Simulated assay, not measured.
Amino acid sequence: MENHKLDFLPPNIDYTPLIKDISEANRILGSLNGLLANIPNQSLLISPLLTKEAVASSKIEGTQATIEEVFKYEAEGKSSEIGTKEQDIREIINYRKAIHAAIELLEKKALGENFVKRLHAILLDSVRGSNKDKGNFRKIPVFIGKPGAAIENAIFIPPDVSELSELISNWEKFVNSPDEPDVLVQTAIAHYQFEAIHPFMDGNGRIGRLLIPIMLYEKGILSYPLLYVSEFFERNRDDYYSFLRMVDKENNWESWIIYFLKSIKEQALDTQSKVLNMLELYKSIKEKLSDFNSQYAIHLLDIIFENPVTSFKNIKTRINTNSYQTIYNLLDKFQEEKILVEVTGGKRNKIYVFDELMKIIR
Rank of each mutant, 00 (worst) to 15 (best):
L184A: 09
L184K: 05
L184E: 06
V185Q: 11
T187A: 10
A188G: 03
A188I: 02
I189T: 03
I189W: 03
H191A: 10
H191Q: 07
Y192N: 04
Y192A: 09
Q193Y: 15
F194H: 00
F194P: 05
A196S: 14
A196H: 08
I197G: 02
I197H: 06
P199H: 09
P199D: 00
P199C: 11
F200L: 09
F200M: 10
M201R: 15
D202G: 08
G203N: 09
N204F: 13
N204H: 12
N204S: 11
I207L: 10
G208F: 00
R209G: 04
L210F: 00
I212P: 01
I212H: 06
P213V: 01
P213I: 02
P213R: 01
I214M: 03
M215Q: 06
M215I: 04
L216T: 00
Y217T: 00
Y217F: 13
K219H: 11
K219C: 02
K219F: 12
G220T: 13
G220D: 13
L222G: 00
S223I: 04
P225H: 00
P225W: 02
P225T: 02
L226F: 04
Y228K: 08
Y228T: 10
Y228W: 13
V229D: 00
S230M: 06
S230Y: 01
F232Q: 03
F232L: 00
R235E: 14
N236E: 12
R237G: 01
R237E: 08
D238Q: 15
D239C: 10
Y240L: 10
S242T: 07
S242Q: 09
F243V: 11
L244M: 09
R245D: 09
M246L: 13
V247N: 04
D248Y: 10
E250D: 12
N252H: 06
S255H: 10
S255D: 15
W256K: 04
W256M: 10
I257G: 07
I258T: 09
I258F: 01
I258L: 11
I258V: 05
F260L: 03
S263W: 08
K265R: 14
E266D: 12
Q267V: 07
A268L: 02
L269F: 02
L269G: 11
D270S: 14
T271R: 00
Q272P: 03
L276C: 03
L276G: 03
M278S: 15
M278L: 15
M278E: 12
L279Q: 14
K283Y: 15
K283H: 15
